[in-house]
């Protein structure tokens, strides 16, 4: 880190490539516009003016999985929806992350029955679980910030 002290007044900052890439990834993480149930309404609330997720570089919700980095599974996943969800996940380009928003997506929630997947982590790898039924928008934002912290610690080799 000695270089900054010498070059600092020339407007140059040195860092590792890993840190620079991870910083860039956290600040423009586009979530997929993909709502399932009740949590989707709270996800919309988190997008709207009161909570405003665009503060974290997330003002763009992409309806196409091909253009998104983050899948927020907002709501319960039924057995009929599970293959669709997996296909959407497969269509997302690397690097990609998944947030399980709410109790139903995390563990099945109150619906412990034949129709609901007991946690979306049965079909896709989940990075962050957000508790609540449904979680408040603040809860979702906390989950996203936690994901950002996690991404900042990632190794480049993970997605190579």
């Amino acid at each position: 880190m000695g270089v900054e002290q010498k070059l600092g007044n020339m407007g140059v900052v040195t860092t590792s490539l890993e840190q620079a890439v991870n910083w860039a990834r956290t600040n423009a993480m586009w979530p997929m516009l993909f709502g399932l149930a009740c949590c989707a309404i709270e996800m919309m609330a988190a997008q709207a003016s009161t909570y405003d997720m665009s503060r974290f570089g997330m003002e763009l919700m992409r309806a196409s999985p091909r253009q998104s980095d983050l899948m927020i599974v907002a709501g319960r996943v039924s057995r009929k929806m599970a293959p669709v969800l997996r296909q959407l996940y497969d269509q997302m380009p690397y690097p990609k992350w998944v947030i399980a928003m709410g109790d139903c997506a995390s563990c099945g929630g109150v619906f412990n029955n034949y129709a609901i997947l007991q946690g979306v982590d049965e079909i896709v790898p989940v990075e962050v679980y957000v508790a609540g039924c449904p979680p408040r928008p603040e809860g979702l934002i906390h989950g996203i910030i936690s994901l950002h912290e996690k991404v900042k610690k990632e190794k480049l080799s993970k997605w190579a």
Partner: peptide, 25 residues
Amino acid sequence: GFLHTGVEKNMEAKTYQKAEVMTDR
């Protein structure tokens, strides 16, 4: 049917008061 939650079946397995929690969702 992509959001079929099985609420009706699940309510049959709960008492009247507990089943109400399902109805919100």
